[in-house]
Amino acid sequence: QSFSCAANPPNGTNIGIMIATDPNPEQTLRYNITGGNTNNAFYILSATGMIRVASSSAVNPGVFNLTVRVTDNGSPAMWSEATATVTVGGGSNLPPVITNQSFSIAANPPGGTQVGTVVATDPNAGQTISFSITSGNTNNAFNISPSSGLITVGNSSAVNPGVFTLTVRATDNGSPVMWSQATVSITVTASGGNLPPVVVNQSFSCAANPPIGTNIGIMIATDPNPEQTLRYNITGGNTNNAFYILSATGMIRVASSSAVNPGVFILTVRVTDNGSPVMWSEATATVTVGGGNKNGLVEDGFTPESKVDPVFNIFPNPSSDGIYTLSAENFEDEAVIQIFDLAGKMVSEVNNFSGDRVSINLEAMPKGVYMIRITAGSFTKTIKAIKQ
Results as ranks from 00 to 15, higher is better:
Phe3Met: 10
Ile15Asp: 02
Asp22Glu: 11
Pro23Ile: 04
Asn24Gly: 07
Pro25His: 12
Asn39Asp: 15
Thr48Gln: 05
Ile51Cys: 06
Asn60Gly: 09
Asn65Val: 11
Val68His: 02
Thr87Pro: 03
Asn93Leu: 00
Thr99Cys: 02
Thr99Pro: 06
Ser102Leu: 01
Ile105Ala: 10
Val118Asn: 04
Asn124Asp: 15
Gln127Asp: 14
Ser130Lys: 08
Asn143Val: 10
Ala158Trp: 06
Asn160Leu: 12
Thr165Lys: 12
Ile186Asp: 02
Val188Ser: 01
Ser191Thr: 13
Gly192Phe: 10
Pro197Tyr: 02
Ser203Asp: 07
Ser205Tyr: 06
Ala207Pro: 04
Gly217Gln: 02
Ile218Ser: 02
Ile218Gly: 03
Ile220Asp: 05
Ala221Gln: 05
Asn225Glu: 11
Gln228Cys: 07
Arg253Glu: 02
Ser257Asp: 01
Asn261Pro: 02
Ile266Cys: 01
Thr268Ile: 09
Val269Ile: 13
Asp273Lys: 07
Trp280Ile: 05
Ala285Pro: 07
Thr288Leu: 01
Gly290His: 12
Gly290Gln: 02
Gly292Ser: 14
Gly292His: 01
Gly301Leu: 07
Pro304Lys: 03
Asn313Phe: 09
Asn313Tyr: 09
Asn313Asp: 13
Ala328Phe: 08
Val336Arg: 15
Asp341His: 12
Ser348Trp: 04
Ser354Asp: 15
Val358Ala: 08
Pro366His: 04
Ile383Tyr: 01
